[in-house]
């Protein structure tokens, strides 16, 4: 703006002109001011409203979880419970076997997260910073793995892990291969080979990030005598922390919430997501057996209350995790270079 006025003053040195310009500027600025303050209000309303839409279900769950049974049928109790209790938590924790299930889920998610980050960063770097024959074809195959719904290869994948065999080697010792269903091995194998949950997307994110990284740094490292791997581990990876955090968060959370792979590969409800799927039935069953009145005698509202509590408990670790990494995550979004 000031540059422009400077030009105007320089080119037309008549005082009248300058005055007119200044008057115009003043008027323009005030109009701008009105407009911007109106926009600020509209924006604030929109953001607060949408934040409310997002946060309300969570707040509601918190409120339900702390409410005592007695308050359920009390119409004067709204959101803020009169009889605050931890009973719901105790009941759900013992029914769900919470500590064990959380530990299993954490183990599984952390494991796939680490493997996914390692593999996808390697592959992403391979696609971003090398020229080799068939690179474009191979990368379009990466995109293909994102596009094909996992259900299409569901049956062969299942059979694959049920009779797992590596080039017929295992079959030599054990007829029909190994049955890996029910163990964590399918998750380990698929995430270590970049075929895990949404791994194509992670490869894409890493590739875009490494592509946007200045090439000169790498060349300097090369001139200084660093090998390909040294360059990758000591220069590229430390600089890729925003992308790493994004991918870590995504892969952990998506694995935590995933039911597709966990129901397929694990036959018992030992992780959080599969446990959650059946938690309503489990709670109803336990309630009916303890009260002795059959399933019909179970109060559906009370069950729903407990289900809400269990969802809250299930997402609690995620929320804690998110609060820890949110600063890095939100910042990293700006620099991840998902855009390329």
């Amino acid at each position: 703006m000031s540059l422009m006025t400077g030009k105007v003053i320089n080119s037309k040195k008549e005082g009248q002109e300058v005055q007119r310009w200044e008057r115009f500027q003043q008027r323009y600025l005030t109009l701008e001011k009105v407009k911007s303050s109106v926009w600020t209000i509209v924006r604030a309303v929109l953001i607060i409203g949408l934040s409310y839409v997002i946060l309300y279900p969570i707040l509601l769950k918190v409120s339900i979880a702390f409410t005592h049974r007695v308050d359920l049928y009390d119409p004067t109790v709204m959101l803020i419970p009169r009889n605050v209790t931890l009973e719901n938590f105790e009941y759900v924790i013992s029914t769900m076997n919470y500590a064990k299930v959380t530990w299993h889920s954490f183990l599984l998610s952390a494991m796939t997260m680490v493997l996914t980050v390692i593999t996808c960063s390697l592959v992403g770097y391979g696609f971003a910073r090398f020229t080799f024959k068939g690179k474009n074809v191979l990368f379009s195959l990466v995109i293909l793995t994102i596009l094909v719904p996992p259900q299409t290869i569901m049956v062969p994948t299942y059979i694959n892990y049920r009779n797992f065999d590596l080039f017929g080697l295992i079959g030599l010792f054990n007829e029909g291969g190994l049955n890996l269903i029910g163990s964590y091995w399918p998750f380990v194998i698929s995430s270590a080979t970049g075929m895990g949950l949404k791994a194509g997307l992670f490869i894409f994110i890493f590739r875009q990030f490494f592509k946007s990284f200045p090439k000169e740094i790498e060349e300097a490292a090369f001139v200084d005598g660093a090998g390909v791997f040294k360059t990758f581990f000591q220069i590229m990876l430390p600089n890729a922390i925003p992308a790493i955090i994004t991918v870590m968060l995504f892969s952990f959370v998506w694995q935590w919430n995933d039911v597709y792979y966990t129901t397929m590969f694990l036959d018992n409800a030992s992780v959080m997501s599969t446990q959650l799927q059946t938690v309503g039935a489990t709670i109803a069953h336990r309630l009916s057996t303890t009260s002795g009145g059959g399933v019909g005698a179970v109060d559906p509202f009370y069950v729903s209350m407990l289900v809400n509590t269990s969802i809250l408990l299930a997402i609690l670790p995620l929320i804690v995790l998110y609060l820890f990494v949110q600063r890095h995550f939100v910042e990293s979004v700006e620099r991840t270079g998902i855009v390329g």
């Binding site: 592959v123 391979g126 080799f132 195959l141 990466v142 793995t145 698929s190 970049g194 075929m195």
Partner: peptide, 15 residues
Amino acid sequence: AWVFIAPWLLGFTLL
């Protein structure tokens, strides 16, 4: 590059 994309290549073909 083939070293870097090897894990994915293996996974892609087999899985």
